[in-house]
Structures are given as structure tokens and as C-alpha cells.
Design a protein around this nucleic acid. Structure first.
Lengths: 156, 156
DNA sequence: ATCCTACGATGGACTCAGTCCAAGTCAAGA
DNA sequence: TCTTGACTTGGACTGAGTCCATCGTAGGAT
């Protein structure tokens, strides 16, 4: 049923539909639906960019002025635990939150400006790790960060 | 009081040789050789584990009690800039420093205890990113973090 | 519709990792 | 040996995130 997709750069006319899907899933999992949680979820689902917790807080404050920073952190943590959002730390600074958790993908980061793009490598990155290189670990996933220079930074 | 260090596992009987190679290379690049820098380089080269800056500082203090934390940070930063050491942030907490920078490799991290192993996947991880997925970036490298459970944590 | 109460929100203090800076020190070239 | 600027020091500072006592409220029970 996923007719909804996703190649979108900026605009996703189905944003609202996916949003209520998200709230739906959260409610189904026993989430108490508060205005704070709704706002955080909306902020994340509303823009397909990779925001830091403070950026999420700033956007949330614009809609719900009294929301606390701690609440944003709590809610982001819960969304990550539920698998609805992926946490990235591509630069050793603030973590970023990726709302596109349902489609497996990797990230391409510009070493100049830090912009992050979602990318889809060919094949399963796990497959190229020989079992001799697994040291008895049960390996469950591979996070890949491609690094380079984006077109805008290349000109400058 | 620190006669013997670390019994690191087997691998590098050439520890000393490689150490002086390192100091050699650094001197050749115009490094002023201070006792602090020597100690930091020795700490890193002495154990093939992935230490945090504070762990490096603790080990450095054991040999040179008055060394400052800022000096350790400065020196680690310079070693990274010179390409002698690789900086990792696998967990969004403290960065770790990998002295094994001359051999390209990736990392396997235990989600239980956080232990990190160097691993060598087959092939070049860059090769699997189609140019259609590069968005005009000049992509220069791929950092892969494999995640799983180590044998010790699997038992527990 | 109202009550209850456990779950969630608040905000301020706190921790942890890392950076900055003015002043002092010292490696190494002349 | 002298000089000098690169390096070190320690303490203050910042940024990101966590903790916690207290207050508020969503949503089931009545």
C-alpha cells in the first residue's frame, strides 16, 4: 500500500497523511498523546531535513511557546526507541534526527558545509563483511557515512 | 612507578620501531618535539585500542604528571590533521582516537559493551554508491560502522 | 460529565566533552 | 648562549545532553 513515495526533494503532498499515520502508530503503541508530543512529531515529519534537538526545539517553540527542552529530548528519545526516527552523529557534535526511518538508507555528508543527503547504495553493506572479519559478533547493521564536497562548496 | 605497561595482544613486535617512525615523520614535518607530544604519541602507539581523549590524558599523566588536558586535545587534533590518527565518534559520546591510520579499515562496535574492533570489508565501500546517488558531490571516502553484539555480551 | 491517578511536562541545576585564552615556558636555530 | 616564537598551562567558558523534584493533564473509570 505504499503508493506514497518519496524521491521528493522539498515537497511531499502526502506529508499530512504520513503524519497522521505516525500519530496513529504511536497511539497504537500506548503513547499518551500530548500537545508537546504532537508538535515534536509534526516538526520532524514536516521537513525532510536532519535537525538537531535544539533545532527541533526552536521549531516546536514557534508552535507551542512553553515547551521545554527536556521534553523535546525525551520525545526524540522515545521516537528513536520506537524506531520511528533515526539518530545520527555524523560530526561528533550535536546528534541529528532523521524522520525517514522506515526506508533503509545511508548518509552523504558535505565536509564543507555539513549538509546531509539520504542515499541508497547498491546492495546490502553488511554482505561485504566476511565472517572471518566478524570476530564472533552477531552483526545486525551497518551505518555508512559517505563524505565529500557538495556542488555548492566545490564552487566556493 | 610505571615500569611495564600494557600487555597488548601479540600483534606488533615492532611497536618501538613504529613508534620512532612516527616521531620521525612528525619531526620531518616541522613538529617541535616536546615531552608532552612525545608522551601522547607513545600512549597512542603503545596500545592498539581506541581511547578517548580523557583516557589518553589519564595514561599520559601517569608518565608526565603535569601534562594539561588542553595539551592532550591540541596534540590529538594535530595528529588527526597530519593523518597519523583517525578520530571516531561511534556513539555520540566522547570521540575516540585510532592510531592505526595508515591501514584503511572500518569499525565493528558492540551495542552491549561498546568495544570496537578494526575490520576489513571486502572491496571498496565507495564503489557501491551509484553516481545517481551522489547528487553532484565529489565523494572521497566512506566510514562504515558495523553494529552488533560481541561474543561476551551474547552470553550474558 | 466528573473524578482519579499514573504518565508526562517543566525548568533549573548538573555533568560531560571540548574549546578558548592570557600568561608563562622552552626547543631549536643563529 | 641567546632569542624568539611555537608550545604548554590551568582555569574559565560553551554546547549538548541528563537528572530530578514538582506540577499538570490525558484518558480510563464511574
Amino acid at each position: 500500500m505504499d503508493s506514497v513515495q518519496v524521491k521528493n526533494h522539498a515537497n511531499h503532498p502526502k506529508g499530512c497523511a504520513r503524519m497522521s499515520d505516525l500519530l496513529e502508530r504511536l497511539r497504537a503503541r500506548g503513547w499518551r498523546m500530548t500537545s508537546q508530543r504532537r508538535v515534536v512529531a509534526e516538526v520532524l515529519a514536516g521537513e525532510h531535513v536532519h535537525l538537531t534537538a535544539d533545532e527541533v526545539h526552536a521549531r516546536a517553540v514557534a508552535r507551542l511557546p512553553e515547551i521545554a527542552r527536556a521534553t523535546v529530548y525525551n520525545t526524540l528519545g522515545e521516537l528513536v526507541a520506537l524506531g520511528e526516527v533515526v539518530e545520527l552523529s555524523t560530526d561528533g557534535r550535536a546528534k541529528r534526527y532523521d524522520p525517514n526511518a522506515r526506508v533503509p538508507h545511508q548518509h552523504l555528508v558535505c565536509s564543507g558545509c555539513g549538509i546531509i543527503r539520504d542515499v541508497h547504495p547498491a546492495g546490502d553493506p553488511l554482505a561485504v563483511l566476511p565472517s572471518a572479519e566478524r570476530f564472533g559478533f552477531t552483526v545486525s547493521k551497518a551505518d555508512v557515512t559517505y563524505r565529500g564536497i557538495c556542488p555548492a562548496c566545490a564552487c566556493a
